[in-house]
Amino acid sequence: MPVLISNLQEKVPVDHDLEHQLTRVVAQALADHDIPENAEVSVVLVDDEYITFLNGQYRGIDGPTDVLSFAMLEGPAMPGDEDEPMLGDVVISLETARRQAVEYDHSFTREVAYLTVHGVLHLLGYDHETPPDKQKMRTQEETILTRAGLPAPSTGTTPSGAGC
């Protein structure tokens, strides 16, 4: 299962341990949803300036957000997709993730992992527009994080919702 991690920012340090953890949570999310092991997900790490541009371009919102997902499986299949299907891109602002980690009183790694899982679930068709859908998505997020070795901290709070 290829997980492509691209760090397009220089404001927040990214180490091998964080990249390894992100690969683990993506693998867990896909395994929990019976997605073939050869499926590909791209995780793009950016700063607030870059995600503000994307947020304006694709959502018409002028300001940063924490995570955006761009699914690739929404249209007709492209030739060659059957060999290594590309699920899509998850774009995360590390500056926003760093602020939210402090706000929610948990580690930066857990926050970035949470945002990664949240984005992957969007790629898989999850949404949080209604209270039942939001609860279903939150349950999946916490289950995946726990299975990947990142249970919710006992003193921290669960995020009220990613910006998407």
Rank of each mutant, 00 (worst) to 15 (best):
M1H: 08
P2I: 11
V3K: 02
I5C: 12
S6V: 13
S6N: 14
S6Y: 08
N7M: 01
L8S: 14
K11D: 09
V12A: 13
V12G: 07
V14E: 01
V14W: 01
V14G: 00
D15W: 00
L18K: 02
L18R: 01
E19L: 06
E19I: 03
E19A: 12
H20N: 12
Q21D: 08
Q21K: 08
L22P: 05
L22A: 03
T23Q: 14
V25I: 11
Q28G: 11
Q28V: 13
A29G: 00
L30M: 15
A31E: 05
A31G: 00
D32M: 14
H33N: 10
H33V: 09
D34Y: 04
N38Y: 06
N38M: 12
A39C: 13
E40D: 11
E40R: 04
S42W: 02
V43P: 06
L45I: 06
L45F: 04
D47F: 05
D48W: 14
Y50I: 15
I51E: 15
I51M: 13
F53I: 11
F53T: 01
F53V: 11
N55I: 00
N55L: 03
Y58N: 08
G60E: 06
G60S: 09
D62G: 04
D62C: 06
G63H: 07
P64R: 14
T65L: 01
T65R: 00
D66H: 07
L68T: 08
S69Y: 03
F70H: 08
A71S: 15
L73M: 15
L73R: 13
E74A: 12
G75A: 07
G75I: 03
G75P: 01
P76V: 09
A77D: 03
M78Y: 13
M78T: 15
G80M: 10
E82R: 08
E82Y: 09
E82Q: 12
E84A: 11
P85W: 10
P85C: 06
M86S: 09
L87Q: 06
G88C: 13
V90S: 01
V91I: 12
L94P: 11
R98G: 06
Q100N: 12
Q100L: 13
Q100V: 05
Q100S: 08
A101K: 07
A101V: 06
A101S: 12
V102R: 01
S107N: 05
F108K: 04
T109G: 10
E111M: 14
V112F: 03
Y114G: 13
Y114E: 14
L115S: 09
L115G: 04
T116P: 04
G119T: 07
V120T: 06
V120Q: 09
H122R: 05
H122T: 04
L123G: 08
L124G: 05
D127S: 13
H128K: 00
H128A: 02
E129R: 10
P132W: 12
K134D: 12
M137R: 15
R138H: 14
R138E: 11
T139L: 04
Q140Y: 03
E141L: 07
E142P: 02
L145D: 04
L145N: 05
R147A: 15
R147Q: 15
L150W: 00
L150K: 00
S154E: 13
T155M: 04
G156M: 10
G156C: 10
T157N: 11
T158M: 13
T158Y: 08
T158P: 00
P159N: 11
P159E: 07
S160C: 06
G161M: 09
A162T: 10
G163D: 07
